[in-house]
Write a protein that binds this DNA or RNA. Structure first.
Lengths: 229, 229
DNA sequence: TTAATACTTGACCATATGGTCAGTTATGGC
DNA sequence: GCCATAACTGACCATATGGTCAAGTATTAA
């Protein structure tokens, strides 16, 4: 095999200069790819937004394709960092609430990354197909199994867990991906933290109540989320 | 003003040849724009998919930009055709159910159009900004007023109507926009009509139950969607 | 039949694209 | 101070882009 070139060996090493420039490039590229998609983005524009000459971007990233893949991988890593384990012993209401909250936070903290991901899927997921039908599918199936057990124990209605996961994904991601629509319709410049908090509460409430989630302590008794305010 | 040229006077007229070719071009363009975004789409590719030389596409459509705008307008027209009037006198459960169903049908019938719209919003809605903050905003506000009145009459929980509308939009559109993800994760080739029907029922149920929608006949009494299957 | 109009399309143009490369400058360990 | 290596970058290339145009062919109304 070829000797690993320092340039592309990845990971954390590399001088301070390299790290700084790569960060600038990745940030700029995330914006541009998110806005225009893979094909519509140009290396020239990324370079300008990063404040570097085009050659320099290619020097660090090798190619447009590699840069794009690296961004996707970074986004997947963020995702994976969020996927805490759950078991059927946990409180469904708490798990669903935490799930919605963390997805909402992801949309808040990484809107460009979220849009980049959306753009990739929208285009038929040419780079992410195996991830979707591999890793991510396994993750969904394992969560689905837990949901199903909750339903069997009478802790929630017997809804299809996969459709439920999609419901949570779509309704939370909406605020990053369709930000332009949300802002246009609500007539605001930005969404405040309070807005996001209220939306999170709304979504949590509808999902938990809508799926008939009950407290685990008293087996199959009290319903959750009935504060009449 | 200049005399209207037959070529671009729009509307229904034009020979059979024109209509046939324009349809082919529009269909092809919708696919290509949906997949690659405005910038990423090329007239050449659209022409190939339509089975015509590039010059011919430009002959009929004038320019890439005009073609794109025309597609957006066609999609907005479909949308508007769906926006039937509602009043506070209607049954909330029925209205919400019909709303979800028709949005779901739209995702089913016009997935490319849906993705085209999504791509436009994702890119910051450069062509649709005024539509969003104008027509569409008004539409949302008027529906929101009805939802609010329902809440005041005790026919549903006092949820924020705008977030509710976004919830319905996002969760239904998901099945068109993120089709690649849905298929990858569920491991299917396509979603069947039965799948769509079940998803529609699931979403309807969660929304109606989650928002505490009640029947209007008995003022603020029975809750809806409790079939324990 | 004829003339006007609609349609068709290959050649062409200026510009932008992703990517290469050679030559130069800066950096850091010794 | 030395030098290997990292960092930098303008010039360049083949190709693709959106769009124009002129010269054709098909269609149709009179």
């Amino acid at each position: 095999m070829a000797k690993a070139k320092t340039q592309h060996s990845g990971e954390q090493e590399g001088g301070a200069i390299r790290r700084r420039n790569e960060e600038a490039i990745l940030a700029a590229a995330e914006r541009v790819f998110a806005r225009h998609g893979y094909r519509g983005a140009s290396v020239q524009e990324i370079a300008e937004q990063a404040g570097l000459p085009k050659s320099n971007v290619l020097y660090y990233m090798g190619s447009k394709r590699k840069l794009y893949v690296r961004l996707l991988e970074r986004m997947m890593a963020r995702w994976n960092a969020m996927l805490d384990d759950i078991s059927a012993e946990d409180d469904p209401a708490e798990v669903l609430s935490a799930f919605i909250r963390s997805k909402m936070l992801m949309s808040r903290r990484h809107p460009e990354g979220s849009r980049l991901f959306a753009s990739e899927i929208l285009g038929g997921a040419p780079f992410l197909q195996e991830y979707l039908s591999g890793e991510l599918r396994d993750w969904v199936q394992s969560r689905a199994a837990v949901f199903r057990e909750w339903a069997e124990r009478g802790l929630m209605d017997p809804v299809d867990p996969v459709w439920l996961i999609f419901l949570i994904w779509s309704s939370t991601q909406h605020y990053a991906d369709f930000e332009a629509q949300v802002l246009g319709i609500t007539g605001r410049e930005t969404l405040s933290d309070e807005d996001l908090e209220r939306i999170t509460e709304f979504l949590t409430r509808v999902v938990i109540k809508g799926c008939g989630v009950r407290h685990p302590t008293k087996a199959g008794a009290t319903s959750v989320g009935h504060d009449p305010a």
